[in-house]
Design a protein around this nucleic acid. Sequence first.
RNA 1: GGAGACGUGUCCGAGUGGUUGAAGGAGCACGCCUGGAAAGUGUGUAUACGGGAAACUGUAUCAAGGGUUCGAAUCCCUUCGUCUCCGCCA
Length: 426
Amino acid sequence: MLQISYIRLHADTVKERLAVKNFKDISLVDELLQLDENLRQQKTATETLQASINAASKEIGMLMGKGDKDTAEQKKQEVASLKNELSEKNAALVALEENFNNKILLLPNLPHTSVPLGKTPEDNEVVREGGAKPNLPANAQPHWELIKKYDLIDFETGARLTGSGFPLYKGKGAKLQRALIQYFLDYNTQAGYTEYLPPLMVNEATAYGTGQLPDKEGQMYHITADGFYMIPTAEVPVTNVYSNEIVKETSLPIKMTAYTPCFRREAGSFGADVRGLNRVHQFDKVEIIQLVHPAKSYDVLEEMVQHVEKLLQLLELPYRILRLCGGDMSFASALTYDFEVFSAAQQKWLEVSSVSNFETFQTNRMKVRYKDESGKTQLVHSLNGSSLALPRIVAALLENNQTEDGIHLPKVLHNYFGATGIEGII
RNA sequence: GGAGACGUGUCCGAGUGGUUGAAGGAGCACGCCUGGAAAGUGUGUAUACGGGAAACUGUAUCAAGGGUUCGAAUCCCUUCGUCUCCGCCA
């Protein structure tokens, strides 16, 4: 959530930046400023009245102490009429506040100045590519065929148990998931991230904290009986670990990593995009999250990009890094790099990670702060990235490494998987 | 799921209607003391928002939300959470 104090001082910048994000309702900024003005006026009026009531009440207390009941009674009468006035003013204030709070949540984060202009994924900027695309034979198979051939995932039974998009991993398919999760977590903890295993459902306040609500209500599974949401990413519970806390400046940066299954409703997709593992409702992901000093967040963003890039290199996958354009960025992000791997049989780039700096957008909602040298309370910056989302990594590993006699796996996975590759059926 | 107890500041802990944002202690910060440290000693030590150039000041906050009252940490209701006992259970 943007800070109104910032909007007050930089309204024009805010509008200009929102335009870069293709935010339609720019007039909301002026509306908010007007609301803010009214709100503050109303607040001053209400509090002044409250102050006089408080003073009178204290006086009554003292009069009672002295035993001067008559004067006290008289005071009570006075206060009673003031209270009527107060309740009117209060009602107006509450209405204004509610309106203001609802509206300011609708403003997305401001994009960083380096964000490219654009509306669609085509406008994203390719920062760099790495790894070599394999030369596959003409009869190379897409991963969903390979999955069948080696009996790694049973999509049909998953669909019967739950619904489409809920894969049932099996045999070496299940073991490969476990190996990847373990490897990714080890890779992250070696880089200084603390491992967490969070709840997979969160309450409403937590979902607001990272910006999933109210923006993405429809994308999360909602357990209505208890008011919980299935997490769409570990980012949601883990970033909130420090919500409503004032952390020591010396404890920054806080580096956290977590493996969780992720649940996404993802309505509205169809066709080849959702074939096999390309898009599913439940998938595994290892996430990295940092809470950092504001002055360092863009350095940390680069560091996290390099961290994920190295991981893709170790997995020996061809990848590219995109800087997302204003129109393709998420609501809460100030700058986002997407990572895509090339899945050679499909001849498709698949997104496997998204690394973002949210600056104070999330921490303002969650109230994660520190005290600076002068003792002032400041919001920290939050960042996160996937390292990595598993299904599309699996798709690319299968497709790119397929041979006549099986799937070869990159060296780093051999120990975790307990074999150098997947050969034959089971 | 049933019965009971409880939820106060960074922590411990007092406080059952009236200058209580909250005693006392610990911790922490700064100063004094010391050759240096410890001990001792003095001062300070929440957050948010509003007003103000600032000093400062107003309001709110004793789990959360509502209510009673001129006045609530203190009384009432609801919710959430913790603990104990019982039940159930991986």
